[in-house]
Design a protein around this nucleic acid. Structure first.
Length: 476
RNA sequence: GGUCCCGUCGUCUAACGGUUAGGACACCAGGUUUUCAUCCUGGCAACCGGGGUUCGAUUCCCCGCGGGAUCACCA
């Protein structure tokens, strides 16, 4: 174990979308590759925004995507509690240190008064700075007023592991609120206290915090806490690329992707390469690849768009890479209802035939139902088929009858013997495979598409194949 | 508007002063004696603009332009 400690600190206000998962993943990878520790912490200091059940949901999302952590609300650890609302005394203690050092004071104004200051500044076309209104003799803090930080405005230059060196002037530093009038700390204050107490070495979070960095730095200094390493992730943008991906514009819950048949490993590979690559032409990464190859230095500085088409390709890729047994395990919840009575061996063979065709596990029903129940006849498949629409009913039935006779005579029912019989049929009828095979395929599956014909018939079995051909002949 | 960040094919990206600017997704065409998919082959397609620095700039600097983030008793 090294002393590298990273954390993921979401607030339990909803679900986790790909942006959140990526931040968690990167923090997790930094810890894992260094043999360090990854901690989960809930930042629930805004009770108004808290969403019932979302803490559990967040934990489930991390579990589902294989992002493991070593310390957290449900795991414990040496630096708990890992829920901010249970750490209120700790913030009080640090707040009082600041007060006695003369670096924090009670805010005597009402929020309406502060708002008035703000509007006044706006009217004068000046940036609003609370410290321009810093009271000369603030009241003693009794916990009912907000507690403000007495900032020490100055220029800062700091290094960001992703963004590089950043410099700002004193004009962006202000007296921000440390503890709200409801007794809860703000993010600004609490995360610094917690990261310090929890010995966090790398603060990895979204880019939206960069603009607050000078204020944070000023607070670190006043608190006498040494700066950790910082890494701010570029945003994942929406599909139009015009703003950061948010829940408002269709950002999906990662658990929904799992429900929709995406493999966790595909999701992880895709999300990792949204803003990161290893410098080679490698396109997909396993978790192990990422643990060894990931580096903050190679994270992109600009935002990346979320491209569903690429995710779909990555998912198909991972599905094809899976062994049949692994795929079978993962596909467990995705079979069509009609398959419930089928046995494992048969389902496995079906799965083997469609493995190359699956883009998501959820494609399974659409591709396999006719293996488990009698398909309903859909003549439009024939009448809309550009090869078959030219055949009249009589010709069609003659071909089907010839197929029936030929297959019925087969002593042995294997993919090879079926193929041999079909080839022979091609010769005796003088018909093109495009016509004959399409006809047989549709007559036996009534599906838009299906695996290779001989494999399909073999798996269907001789009896069902013959019976379906017969039914097709009788149909009109 | 102030502040900060960013700017290579439609999209994700490679390139760390010298390349016919590479790969992948998507798209298009062809092949693998049926469909769909896989797989293979080929194709289309990019350095935001203008100045510098340099023998030489996609790459370094400056100015524009464009995009994003942030300016809460939210995180």
């Amino acid at each position: 174990m090294t002393n590298i400690r990273t954390r993921f600190a979401p607030s339990p206000t909803g679900f986790l979308h790909v942006g959140g998962i990526r931040t968690a993943l990167f923090a997790h990878l930094v810890a894992r590759q260094a043999g360090g520790t990854f901690v989960l912490r809930f930042e629930d200091t805004d009770k108004k925004r808290e969403v019932e059940g979302s803490a559990e949901h967040l934990i489930a999302s991390l579990a589902a995507t294989g992002i493991s952590y070593d310390e957290g609300p449900d795991k414990g650890g040496d630096y708990g509690p890992y829920i901010q609302s249970q750490r209120l005394e700790i913030y009080q203690k640090w707040a009082h240190k600041l007060i006695s050092a003369g670096r924090a004071y009670a805010d005597p104004y009402s929020s309406a008064e502060v708002q008035a200051f703000r509007e006044q500044a706006q009217a004068n076309k000046k940036a609003f700075l609370y410290r321009d209104h810093r009271p000369e003799n603030p009241p003693v803090w009794d916990g009912t007023q907000p507690l403000r930080f007495k900032s020490d405005p100055k220029a800062y230059t700091w290094h960001d592991e992703v963004m590089g060196d950043i410099t700002t002037g004193p004009e962006v530093i202000d007296d921000l609120i440390l503890i709200k009038s409801d007794g809860y700390p703000t993010y600004n204050f609490a995360h610094i206290v917690d990261d310090s107490e929890m010995k966090i070495t790398h603060v990895i979070r979204g880019q939206e915090f960069i603009s607050s960095m000078p204020n944070f730095l000023n607070l670190y200094d006043a608190l006498g806490v040494s700066w950790p390493l910082f890494a701010h992730m570029p945003h994942i943008m929406n599909e139009q690329g015009n703003k950061k991906l948010g829940k408002r514009d269709g950002a999906k819950d990662v658990l929904d992707y799992i429900r929709d048949g995406y493999l966790p490993e595909a999701l992880i590979s895709f999300i990792a390469t949204l803003g990161w690559n290893d410098g080679t032409t490698k396109e997909v990464f396993t978790h192990d690849d990422l643990v060894t190859g990931f580096s903050l230095a190679r994270v992109q500085r600009s935002g990346a768009r979320f491209d569903e088409k690429r995710l779909l390709w990555v998912n198909g890729h991972f599905i094809r890479e899976l062994s049949l047994d692994d795929l079978y395990d993962k596909a467990h919840d995705f079979w069509p209802e009609q398959a419930s009575k089928a046995d494992d061996a048969f389902k496995k063979r079906v799965l083997q035939l469609v493995q190359d065709r699956l883009k998501t596990l959820a494609d399974l029903p659409m591709m396999t139902t006719y293996f488990f129940e009698e398909p309903s006849i859909d003549m439009s498949l024939i009448t809309n088929n550009k090869q078959l629409k030219k055949l009249d009913v009589q010709a069609r039935n003659e071909y089907l009858q010839a197929t029936y006779d030929c297959l019925a005579a087969l002593p042995e029912w294997t993919a090879e013997s079926i193929q041999a019989a079909l080839n022979e049929l091609l010769e005796t009828t003088g018909q093109k495979p495009g016509v004959l095979f399409s006809l047989i395929r549709i007559a036996t599956t009534w599906a838009q598409f299906s695996p290779q014909l001989n494999d399909t018939l073999e798996l269907l079995g001789k009896d069902i194949t013959l019976q379906r051909i017969k039914t097709a002949i009788d149909a009109r």
